[in-house]
Computed example of a mutant assay.
Amino acid sequence: MRIAVVSDIHGNLAALDAVLLDIERRGVDRVVDLGDLLSGPLQPRETADRLIALGWPTIAGNHERQVLTDPPERMGESDRFAAAQIRPDQREWMRGLPTTLRLNDEVLLVHGTARSDLECFIETVDAGGMRAATPDEAAERAGDSDARVILCGHTHVPRSLRLADGRLIVNPGSVGLQAYTGEHPYPHRVEVGTPQARYAIVERNGDGEWNAQLIAVDYDWNAAAELALRNGRPDWARALATGRV
Rank of each mutant, 00 (worst) to 15 (best):
L103D: 04
N104C: 14
D105H: 13
D105F: 06
E106T: 09
E106D: 15
E106G: 06
E106C: 07
V107W: 01
L108W: 01
L108S: 01
L109R: 01
L109H: 02
L109A: 02
V110Y: 00
V110H: 00
H111G: 01
G112E: 02
T113Q: 04
T113P: 03
T113V: 11
T113I: 07
S116D: 12
S116F: 08
D117H: 11
D117A: 13
D117I: 10
D117G: 05
L118E: 15
L118R: 15
E119L: 09
E119R: 10
E119P: 06
E119K: 06
C120L: 11
I122P: 01
E123L: 10
T124L: 12
T124Y: 08
T124H: 13
T124R: 13
V125M: 05
V125D: 00
V125S: 02
D126G: 14
D126T: 06
A127M: 09
A127I: 08
G128T: 11
G128A: 15
G129F: 07
G129I: 08
G129L: 09
M130K: 12
R131W: 09
R131P: 07
A132Y: 11
A133I: 03
A133G: 11
T134Q: 07
T134P: 13
T134K: 05
P135D: 03
D136N: 11
D136V: 14
D136C: 07
E137D: 15
E137C: 12
A138R: 03
A138E: 01
A139G: 08
A139Q: 10
A139S: 14
E140P: 12
E140C: 10
R141M: 09
A142I: 04
A142L: 13
G143T: 08
G143W: 06
D144M: 10
D144I: 08
D144K: 13
S145C: 12
S145Y: 02
D146V: 12
A147Q: 02
A147G: 05
R148N: 11
V149R: 00
L151P: 00
L151E: 03
L151W: 00
L151T: 01
L151G: 00
G153N: 04
G153P: 01
T155E: 02
T155K: 06
T155L: 06
H156S: 06
H156V: 03
H156W: 04
H156F: 07
